[in-house]
Simulated scan of single mutants.
Amino acid sequence: MPRYLRNFIIALVVIAALYGLDFVFQGRMINPYFSRIIMLSGIAITLAVSLNLINGFTGQFSIGHAGFMAVGAYSSAYFSVSYGASLAETLGGGTLGWAVALGAATLIGALAASLAGLVVGVPSLRLKGDYLAIVTLGFGQIIVVFLNNIEAVGGARGYSGIPIVKSFFWIFLIAVLTIVVVYNIVNSAFGRALISIREDELAAEAMGVNTTRYKVMAFVISSAMAGAGGVLLAHFDGYLNPKSFEFIKSFEILIMIILGGLGSIVGSVLGAILLTVLPEALRGFAEYRMVIYSLLLIILMIT
């Protein structure tokens, strides 16, 4: 069987499976609380796998992923609030109209985040060492300050009125696409160049690899996927607050990939699920929940 035909069949099977599971979730056949946790895990998978592209496979150290997530979330939310409903109605409303509107919002969020990644990455990735960590951390905090002072998106009060789309299909379609894109990048010539940069950047340069170009490209792709994750989060609850994107969120995503293993896609998926489920599983311990959560993280890290 030709490879393209096999991939096409696999894609159809995955889409059919996601659509079937979406029917189960929309039909409330699963407890809404568990449904929420599962969908939040899907969003976390997108964020973790995208960060692993730059931190795990390229060997750079970015700790501002929440900033790019915020850019994608707010830009898509503004589009949905201002133009999404009219676009959906123009297309006749219903499932098709809102699917196109959400698809457009996702593209806008990913594009805005990728442009932010390009602006941040071009000057900082020319340097070596921990400069990227410093720049991305600063970028994330600057974004939060800007969002707190932009009244068009609610400022410090938060941005409400965003169309709510709690779709298992859409959330996990983006997660699957993120995994597929990163997997194909890693197993391509482009991916081998990224891994060579991670292992020894000077040797990669000596072999003719344009390290700055490859690092910037990986960073832009990672930022775009973080923006897509932000789009999903914005439309999941219909409300955004700048506090949700402070540096703690970036560290949370970073812990996911470190826990799962840098340079491991499967590890990123498992780390994202674990760090989403664990705080909820510990709710029964009331005021001791975060203490136990922190201790468990330390134990998992050292083992």
Rank of each mutant, 00 (worst) to 15 (best):
M1H: 13
P2C: 11
Y4A: 14
A11V: 12
V13K: 09
V14C: 11
A16S: 10
Q26F: 08
R28Y: 14
M29C: 03
R36K: 11
S41P: 06
A44I: 02
L47T: 00
S50L: 05
N52Y: 00
I63G: 06
F68G: 03
M69F: 11
V71D: 02
G72D: 00
A73I: 03
A73P: 02
S82F: 10
Y83K: 14
L87S: 14
A88P: 09
T90I: 13
L96M: 14
A112C: 15
A112P: 05
S114G: 09
A116D: 01
G117K: 07
G117P: 08
L118W: 04
G121A: 12
G121P: 06
D130F: 15
V135N: 05
T136F: 09
L137C: 11
G140L: 05
I143F: 03
I143H: 01
I143L: 07
V144M: 04
V145R: 10
I150Q: 04
A152D: 06
S160Q: 05
K166N: 04
L177T: 07
T178I: 07
I179Y: 00
V182L: 05
I185L: 10
A189M: 15
F190T: 13
A193L: 04
A206G: 07
T211V: 10
T212R: 05
A226S: 08
A226D: 09
G229L: 04
L232Y: 03
L232H: 01
A234V: 08
A234H: 01
G238N: 06
G238A: 08
N241D: 12
F245T: 04
F247N: 12
F247R: 04
I248P: 07
K249T: 12
K249S: 08
K249H: 13
K249C: 01
L254E: 05
S264I: 01
G267N: 00
G267Y: 00
G271N: 02
G271C: 07
I273D: 01
T276Q: 10
T276G: 04
A281Q: 08
R283S: 13
E287I: 10
Y288D: 15
L297H: 04
I299S: 11
L300E: 10
I302C: 13
